[in-house]
Each structure stands twice: as C-alpha cells, then as structure tokens.
Design a protein around this nucleic acid. Structure first.
Lengths: 130, 130
DNA sequence: TTATTAAATAGTAACAATTACTACTATAAT
DNA sequence: ATTATAGTAGTAATTGTTACTATTTAATAA
C-alpha cells in the first residue's frame, strides 16, 4: 500500500488554508503560498488539496462560480455565496442533522450527506451598491 | 435594449430539457438534440442554456462533478447526487422556505435563496454493488 | 553515515468544460 | 421587399484541472 510521506509543501498548503477564514480557490492559495515557497508548482497545490480532501482533513466547496473552493473546517456547517462579488464565507447556522433522514424518506437510494449553499448579497456589496 | 428573437434551436433545447427527468449536462443535451438538428452547434446549446437560466425559465445545477447540469423545473426542490455513478435526480422533499430566514439571522449580508444537494448511493448502484 | 526505495516535486503538456469570435443566416419590423 | 439586428455554425481561445516525466526528497535499513 501507499504510505504517506511528509512534505513541507503539503504542510504549508494545509497551514495556509487553516490560517484563512475565507475559502480560497486552488489558484488563490497558490498565489499566497508562493510568497513562502516561490517555486511551488500549481500542480502540487491541486494534488495536495485533493489528497487532503480524500484524507478528510479539508473539504471542497463547489458553489457554482467555476472554480472549486477549499475549507479547512470539516465540521458540518454551511456557506454563504455573494452573487455580486463571489465571496464565499461560513454561515454559522446549526447543522441540520435531521434533514438527511427527511431526505431519505423521499429518496430511492441511500442518502449519507448534504451540502447547503445560501446565495445573496454580502454586507460589503450592499453598502457599496455593487 | 436587446429584444429576444425566436429561434427553433432555443425552442428545441427547452423542449428537449423539459422532456427529460434526468438533469443533463450541456453536452448530453447537445448529443440528444443533434438527432433532430444534426448540425446544431455546442456553443448554441451553451448560449441558450445560459440565456434560459437568465430568463428564469430553467435552472443550473452545480453538484460538484465537473460539469453543470440543467433542470427545466424552476420550482423550489432539491437534488440527489449518486457518488458512484454521478446521476442527478430530483428529491421530492418539501421545500424549506424557512431556512433562508434561519440563515438570515446568522448572515451579515442579504440571503435570498439556497440550494441543497444530497449525496449518497442511488438504488441502482446499491443493487449492482457499484 | 551511506545506500536503497518509493513518494513527492517542479515544470510542462494535455485535457475537459465553457466562452468568445466571425462570417453568415434567419427573424421581425418597417 | 428592405433593412436592422438577433441568432447560428464552426472554430479558436480561455479557464480550471489533471497527467506525465525527469529529478528531488523523505523514510528505512545496512
């Protein structure tokens, strides 16, 4: 089997993601990591992000703006997406554990998880009439 | 302003989407429309799908499998995505009108809509041990 | 330590989904 | 019919992401 080997790049990617409370795309993360590791490869960022998702250490958000976003917080919570500026942020709404069961009653297959994305206009865009 | 002009291609795209209860990608729709219009262009399919989304006549689903899916039913309802085979289908769970308000209490911006994707294994994949 | 093995990397090429461009066609209003 | 303009087909370009390859690096054992 394939044993995981330490890499400072992977550590840096995870640390960098944990340090921010926005939910950056792979490319945005790549840009900020290059400040510390100027010649890290974009492929390395993508590969490690996917690996970390598989390991369950981070999660991937697909909110509909073309690029995937990443979140170091894997505990169940929801996200708000601004339709004007595209920012993605946490929405501290209590996780609805019951809705998988509610959905299960109406589903033919086996439901094991769900994602909710709320859409609207963020505070900043409201104030600046974007 | 830009006045909308009739096009048989657009009609066909909408009719074709309404006729199916799966939620095809642009490319899948393109394939089936070509049976009737053998030289319709993929760009035309994309352009019209986006136009119909803007007009609010159909909706776009971004469930995380790389390609966008389209749904002719714009009434509020949710979707189930099979993690094995990737099929996307309706989940006839009563729309939760209240959760926008619940989310609003915890959001800084203005919440106006939400999408829920349920994930799991579809009936067919369960039966066939996919 | 050094040698060995396999995982990870940088850099680049390839890929898939989508959009943009352009010359031409079709619709609708005069 | 004429004209103005939206829409199309076909293709090129763009974007986000993955695959490939030669080289480097981490873990393990001699």
């Amino acid at each position: 089997m394939k044993t995981l080997k330490y890499s400072r790049q992977r550590e840096s990617i995870k640390a960098c993601l944990m340090a921010r409370n926005d939910h950056p795309t792979a490319d945005a993360l790549y840009t900020s990591i290059r400040e510390e590791y100027p010649n890290i490869s974009l492929g390395t960022v993508y590969r490690n992000l996917n690996l970390l998702v598989e390991l369950g250490e981070i999660q991937k958000l697909t909110c509909g703006d073309g690029a995937d976003h990443f979140d170091a917080d894997t505990s169940p919570h929801y996200h708000f997406v601004c339709k004007k500026c595209g920012q993605v942020c946490d929405l501290p709404l209590a996780p609805m554990d019951d809705i998988n069961h509610m959905a299960q009653k109406h589903a033919e297959g086996l439901v094991d998880s769900h994602k909710i994305y709320f859409y609207g206009t963020c505070k900043n865009c409201l104030e600046n009439n974007c």
